[in-house]
């Protein structure tokens, strides 16, 4: 086998593997990617029930209801619209009313969001950046009163987005 053929073979197999990978990536990006929405987005954009999305906002004050079992109900708000969320499991340590959260799951036809994972931030002053940004775009004032300000530069050591355990 000549040097040229050898190189051709090497490049050919490299290209073959790369194109297989590219096809896989395209498929995966089409099917597995999860979009982020605020409660207002959901009412505006008519997100179909059953589609996997991430819902972000603040936990509405006074909305957290624990059932007899491990079920929890709460509401996520961006101060304009509010969506009811149902979740079964242990909420993250920093889950609290008035605090920013991101829940991942699906909407039911009745408009309840059934979450299978809930993320909160491991920091007192934290709000997920997606939430902070979309709240800001909607003109919601942050950092006054008892609401939680966006993490300022150099505020605390770690801002950890720790998802709650996932329910399978």
């Amino acid at each position: 086998m000549t040097r040229k053929q050898r190189r051709g073979l090497m490049i050919g197999s490299g290209v073959a593997v790369l194109s297989v990978a590219a096809i896989l990536v395209m498929f995966a990006l089409r099917d597995t990617v999860v979009f982020f929405h605020t409660p207002s987005d959901i009412s505006e954009k008519k997100i179909p029930a059953g589609q996997r999305i991430r819902l972000g906002g603040l936990v509405a004050d006074g909305s957290v209801k624990r059932g007899g079992g491990a079920e929890v109900e709460f509401a996520v708000t961006d101060t304009l619209k509010t969506i009811a969320v149902a979740y079964k499991g242990i909420l993250p340590d920093l889950f609290r009313e008035g605090q920013g959260v991101v829940a991942e799951g699906k909407l039911t036809p009745q408009g309840v969001f059934v979450a299978d994972s809930v993320l909160a931030k491991h920091d007192e002053n934290y709000m997920p950046p997606e939430v902070a940004k979309s709240l800001k775009e909607r003109g919601v004032k942050l950092g006054d009163g008892k609401s939680h300000p966006v993490s300022a530069p150099g505020s605390t050591a770690g801002d950890a987005a720790i998802p709650a355990p996932r329910k399978n």
Binding site: A21, A28, D31, T32, V33, V34, F36, E104
Partner: peptide, 18 residues
């Protein structure tokens, strides 16, 4: 400006087969 998350399903489908 769209916000998405790419999670384990993506990597299981792409990294795994390789």
């Amino acid at each position: 400006g769209e916000k998405i998350s790419v999670g384990p399903p993506f990597f299981n489908l792409t990294f795994g087969p390789l």
